[in-house]
Simulated scan of single mutants.
Amino acid sequence: MTKLFSIFSATLLVVSTSVALRAQDKQYVLDKKIALPGDGGYDYLSIDKVNNRLYISHGTAVNVVDLATEKVIGSIDGMQGVHGIAIDNKANKGFISDGRGNAAVAFNLKTLQKVATIPLTNKGADAIMYDAFSDKVYVFNGDANNASVVNPNTLKQIGTIALGGAPEFAVSNEKGLIYNNLEDKNSLNVIDTKTQKVIKNYPLTPCGGPTGLALDDKNQRLFTVCRENKGMSVVDATSGRVITTIPIGAGVDAVAYDAETKLVIVSNGDGTTTIIKQQSANEYKTVQTLTTQVRAKTLALDTKTHKIYLSAAEFEKGTRKVVPGTFTLLVYKLQ
């Protein structure tokens, strides 16, 4: 029995090791390209996990893709300059930050019909997020160095949070804290959603120009990506200590963390996406530099399928002018 058990255990070990190696060897490959209607600039992407839809900011509109079929199913139009999209399934509403319109635009998640335009007292609406813990929508205003607080039920701005710098991406721990990068201060704010105030500010040295931000809540690790030093810094969310910094591509904007695969995915404007493996809470290794498309700098991660979606367009040489008819959604899968 002892010998048989030993053989069985050894077999299990070999099988387990083989599965782990196969999982580790998987890399992202191009799955498909989806043509999107319209022209103009682009910014954030956002996924509605409940309704299985992807929202893509696009000039004065938001393109909507059904993730089950990966086909365009509609658009939300009539804004002046779209940046981000926040999802509030509790209220069945989405919220769009309209930077040029100084407003947050609410729409029905089922019908995609606009239900309200909420004027904001602060200029430069950019990043936007819904925080389930406080049941509030936060609009981060790059020009005003603050955040507008919106009640998703009354559809009114109810407050302003001074941030002390120009905000970029933000993420919630869904327990009362919101973390937010300050691009011009090379630091990270911790916002208490109960008091609606910044309670801590962490310097991010050697990070310069932090943009995208993601959270590993289990290990209390923040992943902040920085343009100036072309690095992704791993930050202890409890102390603000920068644990390590991993080299990435140029022109970074977004980052996502996949808790199941332990991959940190960083989209860079230079036409690459850096894939980093989390070995442990404090150890990280680049496992792939994925070739994408120049200026494909923002992304969304579908945690169900592990696919990543990046938006991009072709530009007239030496300009920031989009070539008409070239706006595309790039879809990558693990293989």
Rank of each mutant, 00 (worst) to 15 (best):
G81Y: 11
G81K: 09
G81L: 11
G81F: 14
G81T: 07
V82M: 15
V82Y: 09
V82K: 15
H83P: 05
H83F: 15
G84P: 06
G84Q: 08
G84V: 09
I85C: 12
A86E: 14
I87E: 03
D88Q: 09
D88Y: 07
D88E: 07
N89S: 15
N89Y: 10
K90P: 00
K90S: 02
A91E: 13
A91Y: 03
N92I: 13
G94L: 06
G94I: 08
G94K: 08
F95Y: 06
F95D: 09
F95Q: 03
I96T: 10
S97F: 04
D98S: 06
R100K: 13
R100E: 15
R100T: 14
R100C: 10
G101T: 10
G101Q: 06
N102M: 12
N102C: 08
N102I: 10
A104L: 04
A104R: 02
A104F: 00
V105H: 01
A106F: 07
A106D: 11
A106K: 01
A106L: 09
F107P: 00
F107N: 02
N108A: 07
N108M: 05
N108T: 09
N108W: 06
N108K: 03
N108D: 15
N108C: 07
L109H: 09
L109M: 10
L112Y: 09
L112T: 05
L112E: 09
L112F: 14
L112C: 07
Q113D: 10
Q113H: 10
Q113M: 09
Q113C: 02
Q113L: 10
V115Y: 00
V115L: 02
V115C: 02
V115N: 00
V115S: 03
V115G: 01
V115H: 01
V115R: 01
V115E: 04
A116W: 00
A116S: 14
A116Y: 00
T117Y: 03
I118H: 01
I118M: 03
P119L: 09
L120H: 03
L120C: 08
L120W: 03
T121C: 10
T121I: 05
G124Q: 11
G124C: 13
G124A: 12
A125E: 11
D126K: 12
D126H: 14
A127L: 11
A127Y: 06
I128Y: 02
M129N: 04
M129K: 08
Y130K: 12
Y130C: 05
Y130W: 14
Y130M: 07
Y130D: 01
D131I: 14
D131G: 10
A132R: 12
F133V: 13
F133W: 12
D135I: 01
D135E: 15
K136R: 07
K136Y: 06
K136C: 05
K136F: 06
V137R: 03
Y138Q: 03
V139W: 02
V139M: 04
V139L: 03
F140K: 01
F140H: 04
N141C: 12
N141T: 07
N141R: 00
N141Q: 05
G142K: 05
G142R: 04
D143C: 02
A144N: 05
A144R: 01
N145L: 02
N145F: 02
N146G: 06
A147W: 00
A147P: 00
S148G: 09
S148W: 04
V149D: 01
V149L: 02
